[in-house]
Design a protein around this nucleic acid. Structure first.
Lengths: 234, 234
DNA sequence: CAGTGGTCTAGACCACTGA
DNA sequence: CAGTGGTCTAGACCACTGA
């Protein structure tokens, strides 16, 4: 096992001090030059340790003032959103999809606004139900900006998920999403094969690439069959 | 406006190339030394740009081989979990809390297992309902490891939320959580003042500090009044 | 003014990979 | 072996803050 890198030792030292409360939130922490002296390393090394702590939200650095222990009232975590097909396969289960709608439509006012297009513009619309071991897991109602993916409707969605296809067409994404609990629409309940009053986990996601809206999707999951999990670490 | 820093220019250049598909996922990207030559900067500067792209999951670097465009099939995002009190105040609304339970109990087998304690150990239990402008927003059912917060029950929970208090006692957290849709229990429905069949967003969170479990909480929110939002960027 | 963090340079040594 | 990324050093100049 190789010795720990100096920047990692500095980082570890500071992290320990924060964890044991040696520096309370808001407290002034050692300056760069103090750490240089204390650890006998160059300033670049100290800087790297502190920049990583800053990126992790553990410290706040202010030019001219110093480095402060962060107020951890906002804890951020990494939530991984995966392609459903891949997620199901990784559990060792079978995935298949039923395509109920795959056509071009004139955008309603709401859809047009979300995709940044004039009302009435032709957009692609798909409605697909995804199954894990023959149990309905997700009803995916999606609109796509044709300018971003002109061949979208030529895809065989029983083989390739829209998410997978769109990631290939536009590899870099920005997105906003919301996660809420709600009731399925009558059609969604029928397609998912669940009672109309079953609570569902509903994710609404809007995706943008280089400022151009690509797609928006409403993903409805039976509450008893799906949940989002995550972890956060300091 | 100050000129953009050199490391930021290198990073921007690479990000653009990835966004426009110039480097497809898995493709070999320019080496450190090529970028040094191309941009006329020192290697530390190039390294910083690439390390940040690596931390963002956009590239993969392998010693001896090179830098590769990442496969973006997993997109990770930052989900911010905030202290509810702060969250409500930041919307300019009023927050108040009703404390229904605040006592010591003998841990059931399930609670003991989650907190890493023997069954029957004394633990702290609170049940608090949080209101935003007099509308119930969250029913918080929480168990706390007394070893981590011996004075927990002395807190006035109408003034200080358990989250806020525990963040002060143990500032650095690790946690696992799950988010799901479900029905409230009969008691939760009564406390929240909602129909028993209203879909709820349920967050279960277990928190650990330096390997020692601190607390576990079941947070139940009326689906019509609360949702989790987030964004991800490459 | 002295002290702070933000950033950069021009070198260096190392472990690693594949030819 | 030449080329790759991982990391470090010892300096430097700058913008910024508060005394």
């Amino acid at each position: 096992m190789p010795a720990k890198a100096p920047y990692a030792r500095v980082k570890e030292f500071l992290k320990q001090g924060l964890a044991c409360g040696h520096w309370q939130p808001g407290a002034l922490m050692p300056s760069d030059s103090e750490l240089v002296t204390q650890f006998g390393v160059s300033r670049m090394t100290v800087t790297r340790a502190l920049r990583e702590l800053q990126n992790e939200g553990l410290v706040t650095r202010v030019q001219g003032l110093g480095t402060y222990a962060a107020h951890l009232f906002r804890v951020s975590s990494t939530l991984t959103i995966r392609d459903l097909h891949e997620e199901i396969l990784s559990r060792g289960h079978r995935h298949h999809a039923e395509v109920h709608i795959a056509r071009q439509e004139d955008a309603t006012a709401a859809v047009a606004a979300q995709l940044g297009l004039p009302k009435g513009t032709a957009v692609f619309h798909t409605l697909i139900v995804h199954f894990e071991n023959n149990l309905a897991l997700q009803c995916e109602d999606r609109y796509v900006n044709p300018a971003c993916a002109p061949d979208y409707l030529a895809t065989d969605f029983t083989q390739i998920t829209p998410t997978h296809y769109l990631l290939q067409v536009a590899p870099l994404w920005e997105a906003q999403y919301s996660i809420e609990a709600g009731s399925p629409s009558a059609r969604e309940a029928r397609l998912l094969g669940i009672p109309a009053q079953e609570p569902c986990l509903i994710i609404v996601r809007r995706t943008v690439n280089r400022g151009i809206p690509i797609t928006m999707a409403r993903l409805v999951h039976p509450g008893s069959r799906y949940r989002v999990e995550g972890a956060f670490k300091p």
